[in-house]
Design a binder for these strands. Structure first.
Length: 421
RNA sequence: GGAGGCGUCGCCUAGUCCGGUCUAUGGCGCCCGCCUGCUAAGCGGGUUGAGGGUCAAACCUCUCGCGGGUUCAAAUCCCGCCGCCUCCGCCA
């Protein structure tokens, strides 16, 4: 949720931010109207309530007729209080709904427009020239005995897979490398639950327009998370964090589940887009002022991780319309996928400023008082896509795959050999 | 899953049986001031958070795990839920 004071004091700024995302200002108008209605309702209720309390104090000492008169008087007042309270509850709910539907204010620096209006900030490395016909990750996964898509489909359906042999080893090695990388940068390792209550899901902004992509547990008020951003944002909900404890940097491992409802026909073949994958996610709590520098820091950590994997990638500055509900700015790292001849998203880092913490009631205790804190998230390593990039990028003519140096200690070898047929 | 116990403003705690003067007690910690060679002790004051209000204050409302209910009135009575603890059952 955006800062209500900004909405009240600078509605035009909010409208402009909406426009930048390609949204109308209707929700802004609705929220403003709801705010004044809410305040009116509060004033009415509080006045009635104060009156009732004052009368109520007189009752214990009163005697006889006087007492009866007071009781009668306060009884009608009680009905009015109840009515005013109901009106207030309704008004606050409307205000809440309107406010929560407004996305975070996009950063001034974020490009305007939609999905295709991103800016490429930087390209690292040059796509490799192959002197043989490169195999795609499906083929490589098969000949290495690393990825079993057929049986994934048999057992669980489309967009599922088994990682076997070298594939499973590769994931474990990546987890270890990612955790080591996180440790080097001062992150606390976390293993987070991947099932959460509605509060966590809604608080992180995943029950709004993105709700179609979320798995709900039948018969229970629980959801499967699409990222450990969700449990980690809710981790400190209802807490006031000591300023000295900031920044809090976590690297959380969890499985991630996505319905991929809106992407029929896209990436149907391999493991680029799947219903489940494992991920190590960075999640940071810090001050609003420090969040911008922290965002750059997360980006650098992501870049150096892909450097360790010896991948070719570009850094993009996501356009406002593609930020999602919570982010103020988002950088994606897209790795070059040889057989697709294009860059595909591997990691992503967002600055959510105080948008999530306001929803989840996480604040900081500062010398000047209690105030908002910011959250940021960034992918360290999403297993499946990283495996795709590694296999395709480092493949050799005979179908073997060279293991990047940084991964070798964790994998115990420098090349993945095809299974003998 | 079953039985029982517990949940009070940072921590501990009084209050709950028997509703009103609870505007929530006391201690610890912390902050400010006084006293003081310094420190400690002592003395005085302050110390949940949110919302409304105000130039700022004063002030008002809500907040005793959460949500309902009863009542003129709820920390206190009733119902539901959540969490923690103990015991039992079951399992990894």
């Amino acid at each position: 949720m955006i800062d209500p004071r900004i909405l009240r004091d600078e509605p035009d700024r909010v409208r402009a931010a909406q426009a930048k995302r390609g949204l109308s200002g209707d929700s802004v108008d609705r929220a403003l109207a709801a705010d004044s209605a809410r305040r009116e309702a509060i004033a009415t209720f509080e006045a009635k309530r104060a009156e009732q309390k004052k009368l109520g104090k007189l009752i214990p000492q009163a005697q006889g007729d006087e007492k009866q008169a007071l009781l009668a008087q306060t009884k009608t007042l009680a009905a009015e209080v109840k009515e005013a309270e109901a009106a207030q509850t309704t008004a606050e709910q409307e205000w809440h709904d309107a406010l929560w539907s407004i996305p975070n204010l996009a950063a001034d620096e974020a490009p305007a427009g939609g999905e295709d209006d991103f800016t490429v900030l930087e390209t690292v490395g040059t796509p490799r020239e192959f002197d043989f016909e490169p195999r795609d990750h499906i083929e490589l996964g098969r000949i290495l005995g690393a990825i079993d898509i057929e049986r994934g489909a048999k057992v669980s359906g489309s967009r599922f897979y088994f990682l076997t042999g070298a594939g499973a080893e590769l994931e474990f090695a990546l987890i270890n490398l990612a955790n080591e990388h996180a440790r080097e940068h001062g992150f606390t390792q976390v293993i987070a639950p991947s099932m959460v209550k509605p509060r966590a899901m809604d608080g992180t902004g995943f029950l709004g327009q993105a709700a179609d992509d979320v798995y709900r547990i039948e018969g229970q008020e629980m959801y499967l998370v699409g990222t450990s951003e969700v449990p980690m944002a809710a981790y400190h909900s209802d807490e006031i964090l000591d300023a000295e404890s900031l920044p809090l940097r976590y690297a959380a491992f969890s499985p991630c589940f996505r319905k991929e409802a809106g992407s029929h026909g896209k990436d149907t073949k391999g493991i680029i887009r799947v219903h489940w994958f494992d991920k190590v996610e960075m999640f940071v709590y810090t001050t609003l002022e420090d969040s911008f520098a922290e965002h750059r820091r997360l980006l650098e950590i992501e870049k150096s991780f892909l450097d360790k994997l010896e991948l070719v990638y570009q850094v993009i500055d996501t356009a406002a319309g593609d930020l999602g509900l919570s982010a103020q700015r988002k950088f994606d790292l897209e790795a070059w996928i040889p057989t697709q001849g294009k860059y595909r998203e591997l990691t992503s880092t967002s600055n959510c400023t105080d948008f999530q913490t306001r929803r989840l009631d996480t604040r900081g205790r500062f010398p000047e008082g209690v105030g908002p804190v910011a959250t940021l998230n960034g992918t360290l390593c999403a297993m499946t896509r990283t495996i795709v990039a590694i296999l395709e990028t480092h493949q050799q003519a005979d179908g073997s795959v060279r293991v990047p140096k940084a991964l070798q200690p964790w994998l115990g070898r420098d090349v993945l050999e095809p299974l003998s047929r």
